[in-house]
Write a protein that binds this DNA or RNA. Structure first.
Lengths: 367, 367
DNA sequence: TCGTCGAACCGTAACGGTTCAGACGGCCCT
DNA sequence: AGGGCCGTCTGAACCGTTACGGTTCGACGA
């Protein structure tokens, strides 16, 4: 082909119409309503388009007129690139993508300037709706999304936003089930390793104040479920140390566990609010030569594939399904005006990382 | 808040201007060029906007006028949802997302209707450019992308598309290095397990005709590198069985290996053109009780984390870097008119799945 | 006193389509 | 012959914004 520079101004619908001596309407119809013009004319239009290198109606102009962008926006609290590293997120993405491609809709990942208050990206996004994945209640990007006059679906958190659909799981109940499993095994000295509870970098003990001020409802609920479960056997929540980590990574889990056990060596079970953190805790135990579950019980939350491979005791949530439902909630909304709230089931997975507390032989000797 | 239905027609820049008795230009400037109007007036504008619920300039209309969409499109050959399952792809995505968020650009995943010839999604996409990830040379979606008057960057394949940037690795050289490693170990009876070579579902032996008609240059090159390496020690490529799999999954690798070894039990090394397939081959060996590398050598290509954990001998390619470069090529293009071609290095990773051929003791006894 | 200048604001013309209410001619039907 | 209908195509309005090239006006220097 000729070496035309890429900067050539492409043909427009109007120029094509002029060339053919027909109205713009007719050219438009050739693309969008083939039944509105005769077959021969349509063929002529399409042929001329090919000849002139007209790529078809401009998507942006079309969007402006039709008020449809053909895409849904996805807002993640973390940096975009992080999303692809967290298996729980990729599972969610997979489900969401599934729903999107079924509806032939694009999926726009909205860039979140790290730690910046710059929400222009949210304003920039040409989308028909937003899916918001697990963000803080007071996240400025989220607030910007709410201002946009498009439907929104929240996954996981925040909870109970007026007029906004939500899909999630019952984190509290899930954790309660896990807590009962642990208390039945006999655990009473429990320590917690949790994810970020609120805005701002914070690593270390999450004291009652911090817990009370948590702006991540999911974390709040998971802690709450554990508290309730422990209360059932008379364990006072005030006696349960909670270590928080800002980063969500295996490495963070590892040194979180280190911090927890250094300060509270009496602990027999480390309850993590995510599998990733739990995998880190397992790593720490391995480093220290602590046998799991012989000397230490470790549990997670999420049920990601890696955790399954590691035999982790955890609470599985249907991440892919969450994504799919989020997409469907957004794309298949009829004219309903009442927001929908979908809660998916969790499942307690008893793996090989939970056992009776060390030094507690009653389950073997008592009978 | 009041229970206003979400369907209310939002205020426009024009209505806001009318309300305030200023021109539209001024309102626009309030958002885009604060220096073009006095601070008090700007405050008045913004205050009125808040009061009237004006969410700021409509992104689509803005895009139309400014000819910028603020997003790059990503075309994947596979179904969108597949992308999140392949670790090589997620690595690439991570890098690409990194580049995008750095430039504050969105990343639009273009839905590819499975197996359909429906390229409307490509036409629909409101983007400033496309990144095309590893598609067939004759992929209709890809051809549709080329017709769009926006810059395009290809990752991996196809090769040598006129006027289009590309980033990739030297697959041929990478595989050549691996081949030499194998021939140095003494392997002469080699079998190959490769990914899809061309359009159409095909599972089973890839005979010379099929190989010659391959429309996936990456697979072509990897096979070519192996052929060259084997030729160096006098092995005729015609004697090397190649099994093709349409699906790219561990399961496919497993039964591909099964097919390969059932038909050619004399083989001492299974060379896979991807780590995923190789992991499947390892699975097959484990099922059969074949020790690796004692009785069978297995190699991969890509260097994904799972492979590393499995100790696979493979060729590592910098997937994250590929994504990053692809993004930069697209976003940081100056006015250059010459297309850029970036080739990143590969690295031979000698793991624990490659050893001397079974029954070949010359390396131990010959000296 | 007058010319000049910069700050502040404005009018108009795109940007590239889609949509809807017709116009027009031919055909069938009565 | 006349009326109605249908298949085709057109004209003009509109989608919501920004680019471009002004205009206005008060301050200021000579």
């Amino acid at each position: 082909m000729s070496g035309l520079p890429n900067v050539r101004r492409p043909a427009t619908l109007a120029s094509l119409a002029a060339e053919l001596g027909v109205s713009r309407t007719t050219v438009s119809n050739a693309y969008n309503r083939p039944d509105q013009l005769s077959a021969p004319l349509r063929a002529r239009v399409l042929e001329a388009a090919r000849r002139l290198g007209y790529p078809g109606p401009d998507p942006v102009a079309r969007s402006l007129r039709t008020r449809k962008a053909g895409a849904v926006g996805l807002l993640l609290t973390e940096a975009l690139s992080y999303a692809f590293r967290d298996p729980a997120v990729t599972g969610f993405l997979e489900g969401l993508a599934l729903a999107c491609e079924q509806a032939n809709q694009g999926l726009l990942l909205v860039p979140v300037s790290p730690e910046a208050v710059d929400v222009t990206a949210v304003h920039q996004a040409g989308v028909d709706g937003f899916v918001v994945y697990s963000v803080r209640e007071d996240d400025p990007h989220f607030l910007a999304v709410l201002e946009r006059p498009v439907p929104t679906v929240v996954c996981d958190q925040p909870h109970n936003v007026e007029g906004v659909d939500r899909v999630g799981v019952d984190d509290r109940a899930g954790m309660l089930g896990l807590a009962r499993h642990l208390t039945e095994l006999g655990h009473r000295r429990v320590g917690v390793l949790c994810m970020r509870l609120a805005a701002g970098r914070h690593d270390g003990p999450a004291l009652p104040d911090r817990q009370a001020g948590a702006t991540y409802p999911v974390q709040r609920d998971r802690l709450g479920g554990l508290r309730d479960g422990l209360a059932e056997v008379g364990v006072d929540w005030a006696d349960v140390p909670v270590i928080e980590r800002f980063e969500h990574s295996v490495a963070a889990g590892r040194d979180g566990a280190q911090e927890l056990l250094a300060a509270h060596p009496e602990i027999t079970a480390v309850v993590c609010t995510s599998d990733i953190l739990a995998l880190g805790a397992l790593g720490f135990a391995a480093d220290k030569g602590l046998s799991v579950p012989g000397e230490l019980t470790v549990t997670g939350f999420d049920g990601v594939p890696e955790a399954e491979r590691a035999g982790l005791t955890t609470v599985r949530q249907p991440v892919l399904e969450k994504g799919r439902v989020a997409g469907e909630l957004l794309l298949q909304r009829g004219d309903r005006n009442r927001p929908r709230r979908v809660t998916l089931p969790t499942e307690l997975i008893i793996g090989e990382t939970s056992g009776i507390p060390r030094g507690d032989e009653r389950f073997f000797s008592g009978w």
